[in-house]
Nucleic acid binder design. Structure first.
Lengths: 302, 302
DNA sequence: ATGTTCGATACCCAATTGGTATTAGGAAAA
DNA sequence: TTTTCCTAATACCAATTGGGTATCGAACAT
């Protein structure tokens, strides 16, 4: 008893006529007759009471007709649902992201994705960079928004946006009126520094830039997250180098200055496990790329 | 997407291994591999994430696995139910019967049938002979317990039991002490007679017997049903000729006498529409026949 | 390194399915 | 009553599909 046969039987009962049923099924009448006979033989049950020219449906036939209808509906629904799941239109997507995203591509990407795939359940998790990488590797996280590069062969990455570094000073600072600053001018300034564990990449980059400018920064304060860094600077604790995302904060006593020698910007990307063919991941990364195209760092608007 | 393919896919996911799945399905591994590939092609969805030697089930595959399990269970259940319906183990059986049955084969047949087929819903309807015949012909009644013969080509009948006629008198009657009576001795007796419309067959038979015995009965009272006839006789209103069923009544003032020339007994049979292959009807008629074999008219016990 | 395991592929055969032509038997019309 | 039409069943043929055997290639274990 397979679904095709049930479809045939359903059509015969529905139409009450082998010829019309065959036509509606797109096959000829003789094979249809044979299939119904075979079904009856297989079940060992007479489903139609035949009188050479007409037929009546037996009680067993009526029962099968009802059940077959439900089974066929269920099968069609399943097929549709599996297709949708396969193309990533339904299901559950676990998205990990590092804090920096909160003010850049995450909001736009999530909004666009929800609009495009309303039936996908999104599980958003803010995580530290290292946990996120581990989660992506062991499958706990489907897709991650974090800063490349990540030295894992198991992961695949696409860079979405580049955020230039800006120099941050408080409004009372001697350089606050400047539009552009030479990094060397920060040589003796106290620094508000991204912590090594909270943001290893930025930490490294800042140290590197200072070194290139010929000095080692005197660290007055560590902070984990960009908003903390910004508020410390605004409070006059020190200067800082931070990605352009800071411009999305409305802090009156914070000044964001361009850096004269234009250091390489920080990247933000989307990553997933290599070979994860899930439509959900494919769709999310595509939407994230679309969101990134639209995204403009505020500092570059002028 | 047919049920066989779903069974295959289910086995693969369940076993987590193509070889074992193929073995459990009783087929070789290569065709199984091909069927799964075909399923994925048909759905346009990758169900298994293959790594040359192992595989993982994708979210879409997991969804299909769950749904497939339910569909297959449903299909198996349907198959079993239809089989049972076809063999007459389930369903609804409308049984029509004439009143006379109440004291003969009906109770036994119903009890046996219910015991043998507890899942069949029985709809028991007492009806007049003519309505019962009409019901059987138009399909409103599946099977009838009534007195043959019935002159309908559309109906098929099996005689179950024969009930001999007995002569009934009240205990104060001049013949009450007799064991056997000649019908001629009733020539001038007042008769309690079955009505023509209530029991046309018995009415005719009684008239016929009297005529054969050389007299026309003087009718003192008409009655429709055997218990009414018996109680009228017991009340001394007249004598009567009735089927042996009367002996099942415990009426102290009623005497049942044998009739000397042993008139042909009344038959009681089971009837159904010709060509009604319903297992329910087949089963009921069989059980009724079994019940009839066991049934013994009380009057014949001595 | 080497053998083993496991899914994939190639190729073949059998079974199943569908199509065309025709038959048989009722039902309706003449 | 006879004829014609209609409908399911049958006979036969072709094409597709499904399953089997042999074998491969890559990955894992020894």
């Amino acid at each position: 008893m397979d679904l095709r046969t049930l479809r045939y039987f359903s059509a015969v009962v529905r139409e009450g006529h082998f010829g019309r049923a065959a036509a509606s099924l797109g096959i000829a009448q003789p094979p249809l007759t044979r299939q119904i006979q075979k079904l009856e033989r297989d079940l060992g049950v007479s489903l139609l009471q035949r009188t050479r020219k007409k037929f009546e449906v037996t009680p067993a036939g009526r029962l099968l007709y009802e059940r077959a209808g439900r089974l066929l509906d269920g099968a069609d629904q399943t097929e549709a649902d599996v297709r949708r799941a396969g193309t990533g239109e339904t299901g559950r997507l676990v998205i990990g992201f590092v804090h920096s995203n909160t003010f850049t591509i995450l909001p736009g990407a999530v909004a666009r994705f929800r609009a495009a795939y309303p039936d996908v359940e999104m599980d958003l998790r803010e995580m530290r960079h290292d946990n996120l990488v581990a989660g992506l590797e062991n499958g706990g996280i489907d897709v991650g928004l974090l800063r490349p590069p990540v030295s894992s062969r198991a992961l695949q990455a696409v860079t979405l946006i580049h955020e230039p570094f800006l120099a941050l000073v408080w409004s009372g600072h001697r350089l606050a009126a400047r539009r552009t600053v030479q990094l060397g001018q920060f040589a003796s300034e106290p620094f508000v520094m991204y912590s090594r564990i909270g943001a290893p990449l930025i930490h490294t980059r800042v140290m590197e830039m200072c070194k290139r400018a010929g000095f080692a920064p005197r660290i007055a304060q560590y902070a984990d997250q960009i908003d903390t860094v910004a508020s410390f600077v605004a409070a006059g604790i020190g200067v800082a180098l931070a990605p352009s995302t800071v411009t999305s904060f409305n802090m009156p006593s914070l000044r964001c200055l361009r850096i004269a020698d234009r250091p390489a910007p920080l990247a933000m990307g989307v990553m997933w496990r290599t070979g994860n063919a899930s439509g959900l991941v494919r769709n999310f990364t595509r939407v994230a790329r679309e969101a990134a195209v639209v995204w403009r760092p505020l500092a570059l608007l002028d």
